[in-house]
């Protein structure tokens, strides 16, 4: 299997702003604090059966749980808040305990950003699935109702995947192909066009786009 290993870094959403492009158009941008990431564990073909790096980002203010504490002690770094596994690529320093930063993303034109979207709670189909609303007056009894959930005796059941009310948001979301405005390794500041999932301060995984 030849899967292209994508450069990946962990980060944190700082917030959104705007800038002017060369033509003078206003463009919405998102600022992301990306890296430095500390490598906590190197997974190899021999021991785990696949190649990957376990990396941590952002210092934690909490005392880590014992299994994690052991890991941090072994590596010799401060406890990390956000830990993810990323593919091992060239350019990222390899031994555990080393760290890498945004300089890895030099020359990368666009990225995919994934994170946990803002939670909206239990929502009806109108908000959750953009269903149309019924008439609001003239004796209407279907203002924001779900509506029909299917046919009659045949098939006699609700089709799987039927759009229904439920938890909206607070889900893993990936936004693809965001143009990189700048990647400053010195400041650990990544600026991309458009918006990324989650609130300001939320943790993100940033990959190079395919």
């Amino acid at each position: 299997m030849t899967r292209r290993m994508r450069k990946t870094i962990l980060g944190r959403k700082l917030g959104t702003s705007q800038r002017y492009d060369e033509a003078g158009n206003r463009v919405q941008v998102t600022l992301i604090e990306a890296g430095p990431c500390t490598i906590l564990q190197v997974k190899t073909q021999e021991t785990e059966g696949y190649e990957a790096l376990q990396v941590g980002f952002g210092d934690s203010s909490k005392e880590p749980k014992k299994p994690r504490a052991g890991l941090f002690e072994k590596v010799g770094c401060a406890a990390k808040r956000f830990i993810r596994e990323v593919p091992s690529v060239e350019g990222a320093a390899l031994p555990a305990g080393e760290s890498f930063d945004l300089s890895l993303f030099e020359g990368v034109a666009s990225v995919d950003v994934s994170g946990v979207s803002k939670g909206k709670g239990f929502q009806g189909t109108v908000k959750r699935w953009n269903h149309a609303i019924g008439p609001k007056s003239h004796g209407s009894k279907s203002k924001r109702n779900v509506g029909s959930t299917g046919m009659h005796q045949d098939p006699g059941r609700v089709v799987k995947g039927k759009k229904m009310p439920g938890q909206h948001g607070n889900a893993n979301v990936k936004v693809r192909n965001l143009q990189v405005v700048s990647a400053d390794a010195e400041q650990n500041l990544l600026v991309v066009e458009g918006s990324v999932p989650g609130p300001a301060g939320g943790y993100l995984t940033i990959e190079e786009s395919l």
Partner: peptide, 13 residues
């Protein structure tokens, strides 16, 4: 955290 955002906006002025 906010400073980087403010610095960025300062540059846009």
């Amino acid at each position: 955290m906010m400073n980087k955002l403010q610095d960025f906006e300062q540059e846009q002025l």
